[in-house]
């Protein structure tokens, strides 16, 4: 599924979260984004995000991509 922006909802949401952590150093931001997603997202949304991170990494904000990779751990 894609939205009006042409992105999957999970990619769009992850990118929106990531923008709000741009003021933090990349590693710290990735950790905070991953914590936020872990705390608020249903597992199926996280799974979808991980799949998107694999299949279309360029669609993700670099900090969101880093966060997604942390979620696999």
């Amino acid at each position: 599924m894609t939205t009006h922006t042409g992105m999957s909802p999970q990619v769009r949401l992850a990118n929106e979260i990531a923008v709000h952590f741009h003021h933090q150093p990349p590693e710290q931001a990735a950790t905070a984004i991953a914590e936020h997603i872990r705390a608020f997202w249903d597992p199926r949304m996280r799974t979808e995000l991980l799949q998107r991170a694999e299949s279309e990494p360029d669609a993700l904000d670099p900090r969101a991509l880093a966060a997604a990779r942390l979620l696999t751990g």
Binding site: P9, A39, F40, W41, D42, P43, R44, M45
Partner: peptide
């Protein structure tokens, strides 16, 4: 684990 929010 958290569940789905309304928009989700």
């Amino acid at each position: 684990e958290p569940g789905l929010r309304i928009p989700n």
